[in-house]
Design a protein around this nucleic acid. Structure first.
Length: 540
RNA sequence: GGUCCCAUCGUCUAGUCAGGUCUAGGACACCGGGUUUUCAACCCGGCAACAGGGGUUCGAAUCCCCUUGGGACUACCA
């Protein structure tokens, strides 16, 4: 029976890397009919934020990743928040202490730093100097009384440790390479290494799938397992996904993009920017010089103000950019994994069926947004229409679109006539004119000049208006017949007839197919918009 | 600095473990053409890679060594 777990630390929204780890764990569990556990690793009191768990859960749910044990569903091996398992960890640290496999330390951060610095100077690996005699309870009391930090370290055995990894094979680590590491912090919380090992054992986890950044930690975990008489799960350390700029896919990317955009427009008033972005002017200057970071929120505000498209990093960013979870899941699954045949575009069931842990790639991969976009375009066509409507509604509400209160039937029609559009965002942008108040249409200058003012665009629009008004029923077919007939009659291309009409009803040259657009708009509105357009531009 | 991992088109990758069927396959991007009422979508075609050097072998993308390049870790963060 396979048991996998995704164990995020709640420090913010779920990012691509986390989603990838979660997805593969989930895929393995679902492929094998095993169990998927969600465990919240909230042992860092400083970094955890109260809302992060909820954010991560929401992102997972959006992606369609569910779990059999964990928050909200519970299960036999709970609690699933590490902060609620402190007594369990205490029991095992005590066990190690009793066996002489762990010991107390009282070093201050400064002392530790000095030791590290001198090791660095001598160009050797820092190994914590294990005392001849371990401190006893009395020493602990005394250290506490002196106000020194009290931590517990685990003894690393002086022997070679081999990690047997599904992705990388046997990886050997030499004896004496590892320092005695801390398993219990001075605040009484366990460190990641310790909590992780204990929980994986108690929760009967059989497969640990995680990023390769953890490969170096694994010998420590194995040492801990041996000291505690635990088993060793199967490990799969996946390659890392890096961003297009190189380096880790991280929030910093967003700052970089904003910085670049601002630098490209030297005419911008920095003081004004600072006030808009709600940052101090000197902070902004520092940020632009690359000497400091500013908060994500401020970055977002400034980017919106400048119309800069920030790279999406977190799963929510992709949601807000109109991506489909089906596409995200499909695309992420192909980051460092493949089916072995030429299949790429897959629905989730096919993915589950095809999943095979032994097919992970060893090389790091770059996150290619263009390919993601293409995947999204494909899934926009594939996803069941009703499901698509659901995604669309959620998206519209999140971005507070004027379309957000539209009926399902209407949304379905809009999605249908927009088939081939790359994202929900693009559908929204192309179709929102249908929901604006008639005189709220913003005319794109270029479109007006090119289509209405140049040549006889306005004259043509007048004719179209008259014929449209004469139609009894504005069906797609009737509109098409009328427009095509008109074009033929005037011996011009359909574009000459349709484009002025398009600009009149939506303000620019881009919209869903014109026949559908007019039908959806309705006769009254369509005529009204044409009239508004005519009177507005006739005398220019 | 130390330890560990990795190396095929611009990008994601198949092929590597069990060497020949690889004049290296697919996808995205890009370029050219077609279709077209706009933007897309769609159809056809094209460009494009085994990091370098040594071995082993009848034969190497595939096995071994070195070089180079990339990455991870080196916390009382996970």
């Amino acid at each position: 029976m396979v048991v996998t777990r995704f164990a995020p630390s709640p420090t913010g929204y779920l990012h691509i890397g986390g989603a990838r780890t979660a997805l593969f764990c989930w895929l393995l569990a679902r492929h094998t009919g095993g169990t998927m556990i969600l465990r919240i690793e909230d042992t860092d009191q400083k970094r955890n934020t109260p809302t992060a768990t909820a954010q991560v859960i929401e992102d997972l749910r959006w992606l369609g990743i569910d779990w059999d044990e964990g928050p909200q569903v519970e299960g036999p091996n709970g609690p699933y928040f590490q902060s609620q398992r402190l007594d369990i960890y205490k029991k095992y640290t005590q066990q190690l202490l009793d066996k002489g496999k762990a010991y107390y330390c009282f070093d201050t951060p400064q002392e530790l730093n000095e030791m590290r610095d001198s090791a660095q100077k001598e160009k050797r690996n820092f190994l914590y100097p294990r005392p001849e005699k371990f401190p006893d309870e009395a020493d602990v009391e005394q250290a506490r009384a002196e106000g020194r930090p009290v931590v517990i370290r685990c003894c690393m055995p002086n022997e070679e440790i081999t990690v047997s990894d599904i992705v990388r094979g046997e990886v050997k680590f030499g004896a004496g390479e590892f320092s005695d590491f801390i398993i219990q912090k001075s605040d009484g919380y366990p460190t990641y290494h310790f909590a992780c090992v204990v929980d994986d054992e108690l929760m009967k986890v059989t497969h640990v799938i995680r990023g390769q950044e953890h490969l170096m930690n694994t010998p420590c975990h194995i040492a801990l397992q041996r000291a505690l008489d635990f088993g060793t799960p199967n490990y799969a350390h996946m390659s890392v996904t890096i961003s297009e700029g190189g380096g880790k896919l991280s929030k910093r990317e967003r700052g970089k993009a904003l910085k670049k955009a601002i630098k490209e427009k030297p005419e911008l008033d920095k003081d004004e920017l600072a006030s808009i972005g709600k940052v101090a002017i000197d902070e902004l200057e520092k940020f632009l010089k690359g000497k400091a970071q500013i908060e994500q929120e401020n970055i977002t505000i400034l980017a919106e103000h400048l119309g800069v498209h920030l790279p999406e990093i977190n799963i929510v960013d992709f949601f807000q950019s109109g991506y489909l979870p089906e596409a995200m899941v499909n695309f992420i699954s192909l980051l460092g994994w493949s089916t072995g045949d030429d299949r790429e575009i897959m629905e989730i069931d096919e993915l589950i069926k095809a999943f095979d842990v032994t097919r992970f790639a060893k090389t790091n991969s770059l996150f290619d947004r263009k390919k993601l976009l293409s995947f999204n375009t494909e899934h926009m066509k594939m996803v069941d229409k009703d499901v698509l409507v659901r995604h669309f509604k959620k998206y519209l509400a999140a971005v507070n679109s004027p379309m957000k209160d539209a009926e399902d039937g209407m949304l379905k029609t809009i999605l249908t006539i927009n088939e081939g559009t790359k994202t929900l965002e693009a559908v929204e942008q192309k179709s929102r004119f249908l929901f604006l108040v008639d005189d709220a249409i913003e005319y794109d200058e270029k479109a007006v000049k090119k289509v209405l003012l140049k040549g006889d665009g306005l004259a043509m629009l007048q004719i179209v208006r008259d014929r449209l008004g004469a139609l009894e029923e504005l069906t797609e077919q009737a509109i098409e017949n009328m427009l095509r007939g008109l074009a033929e009659e005037k011996e011009v291309g359909l574009g000459k007839v349709a484009q002025p009409l398009r600009v009149a009803i939506c303000g620019n040259t881009v919209s869903p197919p014109i026949f559908n657009s007019i039908e959806l708009l309705g006769k009254e509105t369509a005529l009204k918009r044409i009239d508004i357009t005519l009177s507005r531009f006739r005398n220019r």
